[in-house]
Amino acid sequence: MREKPEPIQVIKTRRDGALLRLVDAIPYIKFMGISFERRGDELTGTMAYSDMLIGNPTLPAIHGGATAAFLETTAIIELAWSELWGKIETEKLSGAEIEELPLPILPKTIDFTTDYLAAGKPRDIYTRARINRSGRRYASVHVEAWQDNRQKIIGQATGHFLMPSKDA
């Protein structure tokens, strides 16, 4: 007989709990006002506008370094999340078990290249990352950032990351 599907609430508690556990552990994410929303396993980042993100007060425009930082954060969270997703979904962890999980070891950035396509206006920025390749040691990730219009990206980045050793 086929296994009965899990109740939706059990699934949501597990997935949202795991995402929160990952994101809440990182002080810099809070400092920058970054959060992540989940649809299935797809993540969308938001960097909520605040005055301290401004780099050019006369335009005004968001600091390019802040945009790059947000793109890099999105790439790292996407990689860590995809590892975590595999674990929690195979093992069907409960909310309580997720609370007990050790904090995931984060991938390390090897290099990160940001293209600036338009100035960041003083409002929220959104991001999504795509893992182009994820091997045993290295991963390559592409990230896009936009504001008003999903088709009109304001910045994009590609980075290579060193994945945490699996047998550690």
């Binding site: 990182i26 002080p27 810099y28 370094g65 790059a68 930082a69 890099e72 984060l106 950035t109 990160f112």
Partner: peptide, 23 residues
């Protein structure tokens, strides 16, 4: 400490270093 990117090691997030290098 507000800029820590890896809580396990206390190392500052690469993004903050990007902002410094870009500036």
């Amino acid at each position: 400490e507000r800029l820590i990117g890896d809580p396990a090691t206390g190392v500052i997030h690469g993004g903050a270093i990007s902002a410094l290098m870009d500036s």
